[in-house]
Design a protein around this nucleic acid. Structure first.
Lengths: 67, 67
DNA sequence: GACGAATGTAAAGCAACCTTATCATTATGT
DNA sequence: ACATAATGATAAGGTTGCTTTACATTCGTC
């Protein structure tokens, strides 16, 4: 899965720590997800979508999907 | 997380095995997710959404959300 | 009531997610 | 240049997601 976290975060001028705080997870988790080392759990994906005010599908893309 | 799997499956007259086959997971996984024993991974949630032709948010609901 | 299909559950094992702690590297600002 | 903030990575450890195998229960129908 690819994701647009880095861009969305930049649009809001949030550091990884800022985002981590809003999500209630560690900065390392944000970094790992952002760098594609692993995918968030579904509950965390929901929280991420909520924090950015976007549907999950607007943030996470399956490999190969550009949109 | 609550989910509407049982209803969506019933609308299509699919057994848990039918759905499992379409998803490429075991019947026990479908059962466990349907019964709320655990949440699917994000990639599996995407596949589920795809199979039902619905957005993830139309299938999975955070606890306490009725919609 | 008997049969098969569908469902519910559990155990054991492996992989993935997430944590804290730590260190190295790369920006940013003065 | 220096100091600090931000990012990228790793390791060890706990928890969760998913597997196979297996068995018990419920459902539909004959």
């Amino acid at each position: 899965m690819n994701n647009r976290l880095k861009v969305l975060r930049a649009e809001r001028s949030w550091s990884q720590q800022d985002l981590a705080d809003r999500l209630g997870v560690s900065r390392q988790s944000v970094n790992a997800i952002e760098k594609g080392r692993y995918d968030p759990s579904l509950p965390l994906a929901f929280t991420i979508a909520e924090v950015f005010g976007l549907p999950i599908e607007a943030i996470f893309l399956r490999d190969g999907e550009t949109r």
